[in-house]
Design a protein around this nucleic acid. Structure first.
Lengths: 195, 195, 195, 195
DNA sequence: CATGAATGAGAGTTCATTCAT
DNA sequence: CATGAATGAACTCTCATTCAT
């Protein structure tokens, strides 16, 4: 009985994520999702209080999961270069494995980020921490880590955006090491004489 | 007579741009815009066929204008490094001068990009062309210019996104040269021994 | 077995009566009642065909029980004055003992009265009969008993309504004899020369 | 143009009042009202923010108007007896002239009374004031005016309720003086020796 | 008898758009 | 050109009710 509810919920989640990514959050209606999941509209409201909570539920769980995966990856590596490569590589393969989830996160971050509390794990926090620690270790010059974090995210996310819009045709995984290299170089600049 | 109409249209454009940036395209209603502009709802339909055309009108004009400005800037400079600095600098000061327009373009690109025809001037085309020509001149190693274009855009746009969400507090203009430097370094990697 | 079912039904009745009185019949949902009673929604439908029957069941049983109590009370007294005092006193103490039931009857009478058949015992019939008999005995002048019945009900019920809305703060029981006196006086008018 | 809007609003008000009285506030839908008024559903929302505001608008305006009429009537008379007769008479003829409005007020008072602010004119306040002043003038014995106010309202309203449910067939106007007399007598009791 | 997941009709509400003035 | 009242399709959400377990 609880089994059935769980399966229904998974169907809702999967369908909603796909439709949100395809059509946008406002354009994908509850009816679209219910039809796509093969259930009644009302059933969605047995699992989520309202549409906004459905969006938030999907966002937060995936966002936190992503942060956790990133954190485990970086911890397993030593040195900024290796950490960057691990994280960038994961991002790229994430896109290939689950492009809908990737697009979804990209799409709704603008609306959902304000709800992210400082206590929640977040990919941004993980990357900033990695950079801060690299500064402490003297791998890169000590600076405000925030712009550097933005730069790293930009280098990885924007090619993904290009991929989504068809401007880039090759699999992102093939670009993985190029992007990691770009991050590495972009971070080094004022560190001349530091390493 | 035509003077009055022109003024009305400008009021519509200015108000719509601001509200779209503030609340999002779907959340800002025709009524919001009309009220904000101090006109009647019906009046908007004297100037735009429908809401979608209003969005497209605002997007395309600003998008093309931005491309033109970028193109003029890069033409005035010699060498990739100088061109990058000029373009990045302009982006940063654009954000400071007209953050609403900047946010608007950032926000609606996902919806409007499919309507951009290959014949239209676009910031993406300008940057890609700059990179292609730098390759031809041997300034950077010849590669697929598309990922590099994405990288450059990422390095500039993502800090702007961080700025919008308050993660970065300093004016973007202060980061301008850091970002240009980051672009420059990120583009160099495999060019070792080429220059 | 039957013991358990009986207890469940009592829980349903008690919870439903309370919630109907608190929130209103339309505002209290089947889910509210089930949750409040600590049972599943479906269980309610093992005891009542549907919500309307639940309301009717609660109304009719309490309405008839009230009529029976009134009737027994008036029968035990001799003379209109004593009968009125007994009935009014009971109404007032009923409010103090079970305000939820009182409010419930007050609230749903508008919807349920049409279902009351002439054969059913009803407080209105009891009071009207008491007045009719008082006329036959010559205690009050013979008149259409219906308006008089309304007057007696008004004198008792409206203070209860005021009590429900907090306009009257003292316990109704303290007003009991004042209300009985008011009924008595209101009934006498044209009986001058009769007593 | 404003003329048309005004006429539409009057149609909404008239239709809504009638349907609310006939079917109840929860049972009468926005669609019912729109259809009954010969307009589109959306039009109602140009005149009222939502259904609750429509109900409140109808209630408060009629409630206040009723209070004002009562107050003018009682001011025109001298002495409690005459004031009561004037007010009761008005109530009764109000029922005959506009039974829908009467039923509506009777029906929704339970839901709307909590929104009535102490500053608003209200029939209850008018009657209580009349009674208080009669006490000051020594016409009736000084007592807590609240229960007496309830008694007066009960004597007048309950016959109206009986009328609505068909228990009383004669026009209320014919009962007017009987009800006023009943009020008068019900108020006198403990005043023996005072007049 | 009890459960609780699922249902789906129907409610209130929004809002881009039209059109007579 | 400008108005603003009216529109109605489309949406989100509620909730009494059913039924397999």
């Amino acid at each position: 009985m609880a089994r059935r509810a769980e399966e229904t919920r998974e169907r809702i989640d999967r369908t909603a994520l796909r439709l949100f990514a395809e059509k946008g959050v406002d354009q994908a209606t509850i009816n679209d999702i219910a039809t796509g999941a093969g259930i009644a509209e009302g059933t969605i409201y047995r699992h989520y209080k309202n549409k906004e909570e459905l969006i938030w539920g999907l966002f937060s769980s995936n966002y936190v999961a992503l942060a956790d995966r990133l954190d485990r990856l970086q911890e397993a590596e030593t040195g900024l270069r290796a950490k960057l490569e691990a994280m960038v590589s994961m991002f790229c393969s994430l896109y290939e494995c689950d492009p809908a989830m990737f697009s979804f996160l990209l799409l709704v971050q603008h609306r959902q980020l304000p709800r992210v509390t400082p206590a929640m794990p977040s990919p941004v926090k993980v990357v900033r921490e990695v950079l801060s620690q690299a500064m402490e270790r003297g791998e890169i010059a000590p600076r405000d880590p925030e712009p550097l974090t933005a730069i790293v995210f930009g280098i990885v996310l924007q090619p993904a955006v290009f991929k989504v819009y068809g401007r880039i045709e090759r699999p992102l995984t093939e670009l993985s090491s190029q992007l990691a290299e770009a991050c590495w170089m972009a971070l080094k600049p004022t560190s001349i004489g530091t390493g």
